[in-house]
Design a protein around this nucleic acid. Sequence first.
RNA 1: GGCGGGGUAGCUCAGAUGGUUAGAGCGUAGGAUUCAUAACCCUAAGGUCGGCAGUUCGAUUCUGCUCCCCGCUACCA
Length: 712
Amino acid sequence: MPRYLLTAALPYANGPIHIGHLAGCYLPADVYHRYLKAKGEDALLICGTDEHGVAITLQARKEGVTPQELVDRNFKVIHQAFEGLGIVFTHFSRTSREIHHREAQAFFLDLYNKGFLKEKTTSQFYDPVAGTFLADRYLVGTCPHCSFDGAYGDQCEKCGTSLSPDELQYPRSVLSGSVPEKRETNNWFLPMDEMLHLPEFATYTERIARWKSNVKGQFNSWVQQGLQPRSMTRDLDWGVKVPLEGAEGKVLYVWFDAPIGYLSATKEYMDLQGNPEGWRDYWESEDSRLVHFIGKDNIVFHTLIFPMMLAAHGQMVLPWQVPANEFMNLEGRKLSTSRGWAVWLHEYLQDIPGRQDELRYTLLCNLPETKDADFSWQDYQLRVNSELVAILGNFVNRVMVLTHKLSDGHCGDLPTVEANTSHVSLELELAGTRQEILLAMEQFRLREAMAGVIHLARLGNRYLAETEPWKLLKTDSEAASRVLRLAAELCAELCIALEPFLPFTASKLSHQLQWQASAQEREAWWNPGSADSKGTVDARTRYLAQGHRLGPAALLFVPIEDELIQAQIHKLSPMNDSKLENDPKPENKSKPENTPKPDAELKPEVTYDQFAALDLRIATILSAQPVPGADKVLEIKVDLGDEQRTVVSGIAQHFQPEELVGKQVLMLTNLAPRKIRGIVSQGMLLMAENQEGQLVLVGPNGNGILPGDRVS
RNA sequence: GGCGGGGUAGCUCAGAUGGUUAGAGCGUAGGAUUCAUAACCCUAAGGUCGGCAGUUCGAUUCUGCUCCCCGCUACCA
């Protein structure tokens, strides 16, 4: 029997969890895990917070707390929110724990000792303004081969040559624009190009054919493009220390360290179970199936880099399946935490208490399994009211009420096959739907499986409509009793079927029926073939004993009122601005390898002389045109009164070129010229950024201002 | 810009190794019913399957080009 090792992407501890995270991986992981457990499989679901990386340190600095304080707080919020929604992990750890540091270092050393990590000493550039070492691509300068003044630290875009940063002439920092200092530093590289040919990895590559198209596509694309050695260490002080001599001030690259979190969390769990070697059954055993639940932004790391690390380490299983989901939008727009465009799980649980399954259901119905999906509050209301309330809740309620009317809640006999063909056709349809649910689950089509479960209740409603037990009640109470018994059996079956998806509802229903599924009953239901020969009433598994008394009827779901929806929509957009079309800086980064954004704090004070050094003037835009091969910059010609200049400005996604012509704008004129995309930019246009992240021209308000007029 | 994924009924989404009437749920309309949270049940209307070419006896399904959305990546002095 296979064992399953499920992982859900480690949530990054710089903020709480929102519905996008849930739909992307945590809810599917939880449902699949519950499904496997119900089926009687041996399965672990491992997760934990990822607490390292630059973004954490920046966020902490912004809030005026230490990184540790920040991650402590977020760990708690995240962990509690998951629990609140019934997302149950076998173990939920965190990468800041000692065991993780130890494991990550051991893993690193293992690869190091096997020769998979190649040290390179480089004169890395250090940005004295940003206070950080600069990754290769954060450097620009002149290419030594073709003299192109826009080459990056790793490659020249113009002539295609691969470069190392110290080959660059006249290097500059992309972050601050300052001239970086050269500082000696060592880093360790994973030779991904070579590792592609490891036998373990080559074997692994074959199974990718049966994966989802989005995952397959990304994987193939990377392999075909050719891989390059990638540095697995960083010059930073927050993270897992590099366990080598002379590596002070260096930590493991978060993408090296984070997936090892799956391993260290498993070990931590097994230690707590008093079974310190137990992790081997899941990580080293051939019959173990490693499944990574992730969002689409993580595909390359989970299908390429981490598997290579595992292959290099040796003896470890490589992913069996990576059912990566696309993204969940909110009311038609991308989620954006910085603009408050998100539904936060911890807030939902607080604002709408006792409605966990309503959220689980709506998200499950809309999982972005093949493409980006959309969550809207109206859809939420509609799904709850017309599906959970009207189909599922109503069916159960009808059965409960009728049974109490008929026999004070006591269950009668099961119908016989000959009694009425409605019974038989119900049985057949139930069995068919069950098979569809099972098939969908096997193929990670959770949305379809969820719909199938609701369909079971729909079949129940149809059965009641056909048999009309409320009429039989008066004419033939025996017949009524049999119909209701079968309907009650279906309620019990619903209990089992609902559990992985809507555990709170399953539990309520179970209580209401005064009945609980045994492990055998659950396993029989969830295993194909185990009960499908019992398609008729006489032979079917009986869940409820004859004469069993149901508990008092209680509503499983209550309709969502308009006011609730209005309040949530209102909360979502305090300034309901319909112009918010483009999202130039969407929040979606789960990892910190991105350019740090300037934070909201005031910068350190400057002297008057420093200010006076700036030459600020009003310019009039004469023309603006797109730059071929660049999405974000425009080539702009401006009039400064006695001269005209060309400026290359990164505003292409905020303005149409034609709408800029003739506008007056504030300009910094004595900034050092700089080539961008082969065009010399002589100065910088100054813009204001509003709360939605849109750029707005800054220009004179009064009259009589001419091009070239000074600003001071 | 490069690479990958997606664009299918009013809405949210399935599906199609190319072939008679392209599906589901919701919504809408009509009917039936009253046990039930005015819920359930039945029926119907609704789609040039992003656009333009091509291959083919036949394409929504294959090929090329193009537009739009998303991700990775590059670009923002």
